[in-house]
Every structure is written in C-alpha cells, then in structure tokens.
Design a protein around this nucleic acid. Sequence first.
DNA 1: ATAGTTGTATTATATCATATATAACAAACA
DNA 2: TGTTTGTTATATATGATATAATACAACTAT
Lengths: 126, 126
Amino acid sequence: MRLRIDAASTVPLYQQIHDQIILGLAAGELRPDETLPAVRQLADELNVNMLTVAKGYNLLKTEGYLISDRRQGTRVAADFQADKLFMQSLQEQLHLLTAAAKIRGLSVAELQQIITTQYQGFEQGE
Amino acid sequence: MRLRIDAASTVPLYQQIHDQIILGLAAGELRPDETLPAVRQLADELNVNMLTVAKGYNLLKTEGYLISDRRQGTRVAADFQADKLFMQSLQEQLHLLTAAAKIRGLSVAELQQIITTQYQGFEQGE
DNA sequence: ATAGTTGTATTATATCATATATAACAAACA
DNA sequence: TGTTTGTTATATATGATATAATACAACTAT
C-alpha cells in the first residue's frame, strides 16, 4: 500500500499517516495480520522522521487497529470491534457534520446518499 | 444561547466556540440576522480571552455563517449555501468516518440510522 | 557468536498553534 | 463626549508537532 503525504497541509503528518492507513484498511488494501513497513523504512519513503511514523502507528494501536511486536514488527490486528469509545467518538463527529450539512440545506437523503456512495466505494476493493 | 466550554479538552477553545455555534444554528437556538454576544461579553462569560472568542467568530465568518459590522456587532448571516468548498470538506470528513465505521463492522444502514436520528434531533427545536 | 532488524526510549532543539495580557484604533451610537 | 463595536498590534507563555542523534532490549538470520 502506498501512502501519500502532504507536507504543506495543516493536518499533522502523523495524523495523515493514521488517516491513510484507516482508508487503506477500509478499501481492503491492508488486511488482518498483514505486516506494515518498519518505522524506519516508511519514514525513509515519506521523507519524515522515524518518530513521526511511530506516533502514527501508536495512535492506531491505541485504537486497536494495529499490534506491535518487537520481533515481528507492526501488523494489522485480527479483528476490530465497534466499542463504546469508538461509537461515542463517531456520534460526536457525525453530530457536528450533520449540523453543518443541515444548516446549508442538505437533506437527510442527500447525506445518506453521500455515505452510501463512499461505503460502496470501499467495497469495490474487496 | 448558552455555550459550554471545556478547558481540559484537547479541542482548542476557539474551535469549541465555533462548533457550539454551528450546533446552535442547526438546533434553531440561533436564527438568521440574530445578534451574537460581543466578543468581550462572551469572553467574560466563558472566562477566556477576547481574542479567543474573536478567533472563533472569524472562523465562522470565513465559512459564511456570521457577518461582522463595526456598528452592529456580529450577527448570523441571512442564508447559507452548500458551496463547493463546503461540499469538498464534508466529503473528506465523511470519507474517513465512513471508513472507520466500515472497518469496525457497522453497516450502511446503521450509519444512516445515526444520521437520521441526529438530523431529526435538530428539527425538534424549530 | 555476530550482525542486522524490530519497536521503543532518551535527550536536545526548532517551529508553529494556541491562549493570554495589555493597549490602541476607527467607526458608530447615545 | 464617552461608550461600545470589531479589529489590530505587541509581547509572552505553553503545548503540540517535527526533527536529529543515540541508545537499548528482543528477536532473526547468517
């Protein structure tokens, strides 16, 4: 899987790495138990510091997406759950997005359409 | 409208102010042409600096939600549009959320259900 | 055993975002 | 003439972000 980093973005580099891997997981480009590049290797490819990659990996680990072993490196977890913490975070973020969309005149149907299209877009790669 | 600020949150104070006002607009607690508290007054109420409130207001102005006059203070704009910039930002943010939800096993229907419930929650206050 | 790789930890440094404090300004109003 | 409005300016402090350079323990391959 290939990561694209925008150094000019206001989004922190470690956050971009985090987000891209989430997208890769959803698209099926990364599969359970698959091994990820070593922090030094990915740092070289992206021209960022080793610790920046490690920070992105660590964030994904605290969220349960990745597992680290000192022997085997970092790999994708076997399965993920929609735990309470995730559901609460999802609700909060959707709350703000739904509010902004409603203010600007988008209907529920239009919002649902966007989500459906994006969701199906992920299923294409499986 | 009453704003609630969490000084211990990792979300910047000006961002919290911004977000709460968006939610207030969606819930009908703030209406078009309505005047908002002066930056100094709101800063006093929230125990934050005047410039922090101004930063939140300015962000909302660049997004088209508010209008500032040196005579009349800051008020809600007359109407909002779903312009290209907003739609693009909405798509990007929903993209990541949809990806995370899919990974964790949520179906399209479950996502749509959350949005519908939240959307209707805003309509209650109108 | 030796060398290399893994994630991790440490220390130091630089830069930017965030937030505050204080003051001043132009424009409008009572 | 004061007062209020948003705005601008300067200075300061703190935390997040990012880099650099080392070092370490644990494991793998030769």
